[in-house]
Design a protein around this nucleic acid. Structure first.
Length: 491
DNA sequence: TGAAATGTTGGGGCG
DNA sequence: ACGCCCCAACATTTC
């Protein structure tokens, strides 16, 4: 006779350590049935780009491997969780379902609906953020819409410690799990080859793309390496595009966002690791660097809160007056931006970096976002969607927040008249042109003097496009478009 | 987590 | 010697 299990439903928490819902499931005393459900809607609705899917599949494979070593395995479902979970509860005679909350509007609504269709209790936990939406509010009870006061209050609130693993070997045995089969009506052309790491051919990805290792262990290793070697110079290092190497081991960025995105890294582990680093920092500059990184973690929380409290930002401007802005719908310019063929080296290098690695440093994201929205005057939502197609760390809240910040339509946005100059940004953050040359082989032989403005060479390099836009005119065009909206809003 | 336009200053060339 | 002009270099303001 076996004891009936409890289900732990993995979603954006693909780890066993420091996992609140999993730990609570363990504390229930019942064996844990680990579950992941792949909803094909995620692909069909374009919410899950292929590089990110590949990264996630690798993380699931790794999670399954770890569970198998414990004599268990990950039960994989394929279909709508609202259909599958009730069936699985029945098949396994589970007595409860545990999961960590996902605050994005889509998931939040889905999870609430789920409680109605399940015959057993659900236990939801706040694990994905250090402080969940609703816990950082003004005295009036309203959410903050400006980052600085949000952060000031955030920093005064208590953050919980990391927690231990639930109980060793408490996971249900692989044999029993394999016997749970539930019928699913979903038919899809997307196989889930969990027996091995899927290749990009499986996913129909064009070109060669290199996705970093995705596992809980890898996430911890990257955090440790960052804390040991690089966090002390993060404030400057994160902006140094030239420092980027091929395997991302010595970059200025922490490169933790992909792991936080899927919960391979617990935000508590990152937070307390940083706190310890701040305490140990020998120089004031080092301490500031650690705090700069922590600030990025608060940005992550801030934008999750914003999306949760103001779900309309997913579709339109936070400052709704800008929904009236007359964006250009120029397919040719948009395509040039996407493919890295704008004629501005720093833009093109970053966009090709994205298509190869599924990632870009934040500085590069800001530069290309400013270019698309301010120089090309193309709707930020086009850029937002494209980033979601390619970024392995693509998160609806952070991505939306970042784009609206760049476009000047968001909370705490940069002013409409702040327009990055791709030449001076390149000279400032890639002074030797190393980043540009790394991603644009056709500019290999261009002298440093001209590397950010090759069109000024006596004989510009062949095979590289001339600038697709005249920046002085573009600037006037954008200022006029924003002014028109502001004038309209004022009257 | 800018950049361009405009304003001011001061040294040096030159009549 | 002096005033005038030019124009970096820096500062301020404007977008």
């Amino acid at each position: 006779m076996t004891t009936s299990p409890v289900i732990h439903w993995f979603r954006r928490d693909l780890r066993l350590h420091d996992n609140l819902a999993l730990s609570a499931a363990g504390a229930s005393g019942s064996p844990i049935l680990p579950v992941f459900i792949f909803d094909p809607k995620m692909i069909e609705s374009k919410r899950l780009g292929l590089p990110r899917l590949a990264f996630m599949l690798q993380a699931l494979k790794s999670l399954d491997d770890t569970l198998r070593k414990k004599g268990s395995r990950l039960w994989m479902g394929y279909g709508d969780p609202r259909e599958l979970l009730p069936k699985l509860v029945k098949a396994s005679e589970a007595r409860a379902v545990y999961y960590n909350r996902d605050y994005t509007p889509f998931a939040y609504m889905r999870d609430r609906a789920l409680e109605d269709v399940l015959s057993v209790p659900t236990h939801a936990y706040d694990d994905a953020l250090l402080l969940p939406p609703g816990s950082v509010l003004k005295k009036s009870g309203d959410p903050y819409t400006v980052f600085t006061p949000f952060k000031r209050v955030w920093l005064t609130l208590p953050i919980s410690e990391s927690i231990k693993m639930p109980v060793k070997d408490q996971f249900l045995s692989a044999g029993v799990i394999a016997s749970y089969t539930v019928e699913t009506r979903v038919k899809s052309k997307w196989p889930l080859p969990l027996e091995r790491v899927p290749s990009f051919d499986d996913l129909g990805l064009p070109g060669t793309i290199e996705v970093p290792k995705a596992s809980e262990r890898e996430a911890s290793k990257r955090l440790d390496r960052f804390l040991e070697k690089r966090v002390h110079r993060y404030t400057d290092g994160r902006n140094e595009l030239a420092a980027l190497s091929n395997d991302d081991t010595d970059i200025g960025s922490s490169f933790l966002s992909p792991y936080l995105r899927f919960g391979m890294l617990s935000p508590r582990q990152a937070y307390w690791g940083m706190q310890a680093a701040a305490k140990e920092a020998k120089k004031e500059k080092h301490r500031v660097s650690v705090e700069t990184w922590l600030s990025e973690l608060v940005w992550r929380e801030f934008y999750m809160h914003i999306l949760h409290h103001f779900p309309y930002v997913a579709k339109g401007s936070f400052r709704q007056q800008y929904d009236k802005l007359e964006w250009r719908y120029d397919a040719e310019d948009l395509s040039a931006w996407k493919e890295g063929m704008t004629g501005f080296p720093i833009i093109d290098a970053a966009m090709r970096h994205l298509k190869t690695m599924g990632w870009m440093p934040n500085r590069a994201r800001m530069i290309v976002a400013s270019f698309l929205t301010k120089d090309l005057l193309i709707d930020w939502r086009e850029g937002e969607r494209y980033f979601m197609d390619w970024l392995i760390d693509g998160d609806p809240a952070a991505n939306n927040g970042g784009w609206q910040w760049s476009a000047g339509t968001g909370t705490d946005a940069q002013p409409y008249f702040r327009i990055f100059n791709p030449v001076s940004q390149g000279e400032k953050f890639d002074p030797q042109g190393a980043y540009v040359k790394r991603w644009l082989p056709e500019l290999e032989t261009v002298p440093t003097k001209y590397i950010h403005e090759p069109w000024r060479m006596p004989t510009p390099p062949k095979g590289y496009p001339a600038p697709i836009v005249e920046r002085t005119l573009a600037r006037e065009r954008t200022l006029a478009a924003f002014k028109a909206v502001r004038k309209q809003a004022a009257s």
